[in-house]
């Protein structure tokens, strides 16, 4: 098994773990971490693709590397925004959960003037 294939398989495993965590965990912070794990998997895959597509005498295809940096910056900002919202939610209610008092499909518990 050569390097890029090994890294590709690792990337697939990371995406799988992250996706599982994002869907199964009810806590928002764990969901954010799950998103980051999927992100790491995607970036690792992109790195492996850059390595595989290397021209003769080059370490890697430079285009994926450039895109990869942008992707990391975007994922970082997304995480920062999510954590900021999470902290705000904690400050407001002292409780961090995504389950609202009134599930979206039922309106009976909605305060009339909210």
């Amino acid at each position: 098994m050569n390097g890029p294939t090994l890294f590709g398989l690792c990337a697939a495993a990371l995406v799988g773990f992250g996706l599982y965590g994002l869907i199964v965990n009810p806590q928002p912070l764990r969901k954010i971490i799950g998103f980051n794990i999927i992100g790491s998997g995607v970036f690792l895959l992109f790195g492996a693709i850059a390595r595989r597509g290397a021209a003769v005498g080059m370490g890697g295809d430079p285009v994926p590397q450039a895109l990869l940096i942008t992707g990391i910056v975007v994922a970082f900002s997304a995480t920062a925004l999510a954590v900021a919202l999470l902290l705000r939610l904690f400050d407001e209610g002292g409780l961090v959960t995504l389950a609202s008092e009134a599930p979206p499909t039922k309106t009976t518990a909605d305060p009339p003037d909210a």
Binding site: P28, F35, V42, V63, A82, L85
Partner: peptide, 30 residues
């Protein structure tokens, strides 16, 4: 509080969506 919670829920859905989109784009480039 209620709107911050909706915003966070929206953001989590959107992040899942964009990371899946990015994975697809990466596969296409590969």
């Amino acid at each position: 509080t209620e709107t911050v919670r909706s915003a966070l829920r929206y953001l989590l859905y959107a992040l899942l969506g964009s990371v899946l989109y990015l994975l697809g784009a990466v596969l296409l480039y590969g």
